[in-house]
């Protein structure tokens, strides 16, 4: 016997019973980035063009380091998911799968490289 009513099982999931998680995840990361990005633009813009010791000092401080790490992780997840949707719109079959695997991998490589650089400067 099912204790959940059909409506309870269907609500918020759409006709396909999946996919709304993707939209919700994009909404959450978008709101997160809306707070992170303006501040990060200022920090990064101020640091770009400075000599190396200033760059090292900046990203060794907690606020710029944590902020940049968050922008990298949240931003690259947001990018990977958005790019997946675009690929699903315009490619199919094996091409679609290969492109999706490529953008997800590329996003992780960018995030991991940035985090490694931050760790090296901060620690």
């Amino acid at each position: 016997m099912r204790y959940l009513t059909p409506r309870k099982r269907a609500e918020g999931r759409g006709a396909a019973h999946a996919g709304t998680e993707h939209h919700w995840s994009m909404t959450v990361s978008a709101v997160g980035l809306a707070f992170l990005v303006p501040v990060w633009l200022y920090v990064f813009g101020k640091t770009l063009g400075q000599p190396r010791d200033v760059v090292l000092e900046t990203f060794a401080s907690p606020f710029p380091a944590i902020l940049t790490a968050l922008v990298l992780v949240v931003g690259m997840r947001h990018f990977a998911m958005g790019a997946t949707t675009m690929i699903e719109d315009y490619a199919r079959g094996t091409t679609r799968k290969m492109l999706i695997i490529f953008v997800i991998s590329l996003s992780w490589v960018i995030a991991a490289t940035g985090l490694f650089a931050l760790a090296r400067m901060a620690l």
Partner: peptide, 25 residues
């Protein structure tokens, strides 16, 4: 959609610059 995807160029250059700063003079 175009701007969102094009931003990967800035991300690549920015992260490369960060990696270089962390590596050596």
């Amino acid at each position: 959609r175009i701007t969102g995807h094009a931003l990967v160029a800035g991300a690549l250059l920015g992260v490369w610059w960060l990696l270089a700063a962390a590596t050596s003079e």
